[in-house]
Design a protein around this nucleic acid. Sequence first.
DNA 1: CATTATATCTTGCATTGCATAATATAATAT
DNA 2: ATATTATATTATGCAATGCAAGATATAATG
Lengths: 116, 116
Amino acid sequence: MEETDILIGKWRTQSRKGFLDLCVLVLLAGKGPSYGLDMMESLNGAGLGVSEGTLYPLLMRMTREESLAASWTTPDSGHPRKYYRITGQGGYLLSGMKTEYEKNAAAYRRLEGGTR
Amino acid sequence: MEETDILIGKWRTQSRKGFLDLCVLVLLAGKGPSYGLDMMESLNGAGLGVSEGTLYPLLMRMTREESLAASWTTPDSGHPRKYYRITGQGGYLLSGMKTEYEKNAAAYRRLEGGTR
DNA sequence: CATTATATCTTGCATTGCATAATATAATAT
DNA sequence: ATATTATATTATGCAATGCAAGATATAATG
């Protein structure tokens, strides 16, 4: 069904709202500081399809909110990169997000669980 | 942290986008036709906190898109109720959503899985 | 010096969640 | 009768994010 594929595409966009924040925090918490394009590779490698137009505004927003902190580094050879790391507030936020995420997943399983 | 709780609240709203569609479809697929307030009870019983202002517009949208179908019923005693049931397209959509949901969950686990 | 690759930033649209308020009708109370 | 409460649905407007598309800047390469 063609109509339905459009609906799924739109839904996909909506269902990623917020989820990408969680993924970025989890990523940085796990691998340590990183920069935009490198994070894109990691996220895409994990199975998410993220583009610059999605990731960069997200990183800037989270930095503005102080869940991330950024600093430029100019390597001996190569381009200047903006490295992001997770802040204390970011860690607290990540913990809250994980709780919510699990709560929703549990609710979903309950709903799926049965005719009752 | 007070600041952070505000962020979590905002994130919570965002992270539910799309997810509620999935929950409604799963619910109707499991329990059969139902109406607004009854579905609200089911969803809240499962652990989601959903209000009328969230659920009704959602139901109307999904009906407009023909993932749900609605029909009024006037019981012998009580108020007229608008019953919703899942359509063929709704079933196809649900299947697609489940696939996406699992794909994202898998990506999340991979990201969480390690320092690599 | 032009071209390509790396890296980040900007703009505008489409979409949904939710608070708030409105509408309508059946049941109940005074 | 008629006012009040409970049930049930609809309408409006704001805030927020994902993403496509394009712009900007600089290092490396031909």
